[in-house]
Design a protein around this nucleic acid. Structure first.
Lengths: 338, 338
DNA sequence: ACAAACATCCAAAGCGCTTTGGGTGCTTCA
DNA sequence: TGAAGCACCCAAAGCGCTTTGGATGTTTGT
């Protein structure tokens, strides 16, 4: 069933039916109801190809996932995507997802734009100086960044958490408990968020006049194993850390496991603070120790980014930026230095 | 740059340019090269909306992810998707991904079909009796199932691993080592794969004339925590299992952790066998104990399903099915019952 | 040398929608 | 009472591509 068939069935012109369905005022309410009813009965939905051709908007947002940088395989990604996807649904928008080799990433953006497949892009996991932003700006496509990137000359839409402030605050928090030897288990520091967290950490130390100990600072993909291995390695050091600052709950769980293995007790012998993306998937929550954390919901960030994306498509010129302050939740994993 | 502009620039008709680009024979090789060159220089790519309208094929496959059933948040999903996505890229096809509430799943399929957004669907995680198969068959859309579902009346395209055979074999393997008290840590048994594994397990026991012990059989979402908690709970039983059969490496890792916590040694005191989807993301592989497993690559399954999908779109009538036999890899986690 | 076959190209229709630019009949106002 | 305004509807153009059904000139076969 297409527009032509539906309108001839109704004895109306295609114009009127189209307008009735799209909520234009030049149609009497009676006719509109009749049209809507008939459309539902016959299961009519406009062809997106045709509509895309006619309007120039295809009703889809591109999400490009380069393989090999572990983006897709971690829960941070999924949780964010869930938020985005649910929010899109309200707008009748869908995700065009491209999975590509890492060296084809920029070309993939180009292709999607040139072939008019999407109305815009959401960028995830921006690097410290991310070439994608430049590319999309010169291509003139609407986009929203989840996170930020330092090296862009022109303004752009983004939503980020205050990573630097959060890690400075966390450091301060630990310092206040008397800790001076704090290990930093950061994410990959070529990514902007991790870079900012590192800066926040260093600022926090500096404010307390504590010299940084580079041998206690790590940068890796955030996983449980990473936390476990690093903690296992550095806990037996002659001058071991008395506190850990982790970039993700996954990492923190690994650290907790190593602490337990070492016969120590978190919150007593050792303090642990982590950034917590607040995803609700880590099996039973009871199994997760109550780790002191800076919390900000990735899912909610996803829905917000989706809304910003819709706004960006509607008005490509108005740019908007948001920075969220994570919430400090004090758990049982932190305490005075002994 | 669109077709019209490109062809007038070249002094050719749209017909000829279109045919040159799409590899039709009615164009001289010289002209074709000239066209291709010009297209590259000017960055011309055909509008997918227009092409979709003209051909009826939109060059996209739908992947619908209902939220809440934990599909998206586990690595099994990601690994499969990676394979699919990379294979699609070779065909110039992209993924239209819809994330929806669980009770809107079927409606979402309908909508995508009616509005002509996709050329077909890939179904993941089929249930024992999956309503999606029926729906798509009545809608007349090409689709490929990763896995199988029992309750379909008509044939359909699928790729599955021999879950039943694999678990029977694994059970046999443990029985041969003298084990009689084997715990089954299965996935959700409303899903077809888990149901088949359970049947394989029971058949294996039956063949050895060992009565099943329902109190040692579990069915849950596959996670590390699940494995850890169940193992922790049943290891201290008066008549504890001497072997574990797990549905996923994640689960097995949890079991291994519980075994270590209990002061036991896997491969000596306790045997562990697991299904291994062979994903390459579990942090450093060195950290993962060498668990005896039945191995089948999810990534490769993804690429194969993608190819089957393309074939299904080209010829919706020819249906094809494949069942893969997982490989039994003997590791250090299994040994004679003591 | 002439018809038949071929190689190469083109004009125009059509895919299903939105949107422009009216048209028709009815009400309102001076 | 005539003009202006309004409510409601329609015909047709156009979005950018593919594809049908030739047209034109060039070879080939006998």
């Amino acid at each position: 069933m297409n527009l032509k068939e539906l309108s001839s069935y109704l004895g109306l012109s295609q114009t009127t039916v189209s307008r009735a369905l799209n909520g234009f005022p030049e149609v009497s309410e009676k006719t509109r109801q009749r049209v809507i009813e008939a459309a539902k009965v016959h299961g009519y939905m406009p062809s997106q190809s045709a509509r895309g051709l006619a309007t120039g908007k295809v009703g889809a947002i591109g999400h490009i996932i380069p393989l090999g940088n572990h983006q897709m395989i971690n829960p941070h990604f999924s949780d964010f995507m869930a938020g985005v996807g649910i929010a899109y649904a309200d707008f009748g928008i869908d995700i065009v997802m491209k999975i590509c080799a890492q060296d084809e990433e920029l070309a993939t953006y180009r292709k999607l734009v040139k072939s008019n497949r999407v109305d815009g892009f959401v960028l995830q996991g921006p690097l410290v100086d991310d070439p994608r932003i430049d590319l999309l700006q010169t291509l003139g496509v609407p986009f929203v960044v989840h996170g930020r990137s330092a090296g862009a000359t022109q303004p752009y839409n983004y939503l980020d958490v205050d990573n630097e402030g959060a890690f400075e605050r966390a450091t301060q928090f630990l310092v206040d408990f008397g800790h001076r030897d704090i290990a930093l288990l950061n994410g990959m520091e070529n990514m902007d968020f991790a870079n900012k967290r590192r800066m926040g950490f260093l600022t926090g130390l500096q404010r307390a006049a504590i010299p940084a100990r580079p041998e206690l600072m790590f940068s890796q993909d955030m996983s449980e194993v990473y936390g476990y291995e690093v903690a296992t390695k550095i806990l037996p050091l002659p001058n071991p850390p008395t506190a850990f600052l982790c970039a993700s709950k996954l990492v923190a769980l690994g650290v907790m496991r190593a602490i337990a293995d070492a016969g120590l007790i978190a919150g007593k012998d050792i303090s642990v603070v982590t950034f917590d993306d607040d995803f609700g998937f880590l099996g039973t929550h009871a199994a997760v120790p109550q780790i002191t954390c800076l919390r900000s919901s990735l899912y909610r960030a996803g829905t917000r980014v989706a809304h910003m994306m819709m706004a960006a498509v509607d008005d490509p010129l108005a740019i908007s930026t948001e920075i969220w302050e994570p919430e400090l939740v004090v758990g049982k994993s932190t305490g005075m230095k002994i």
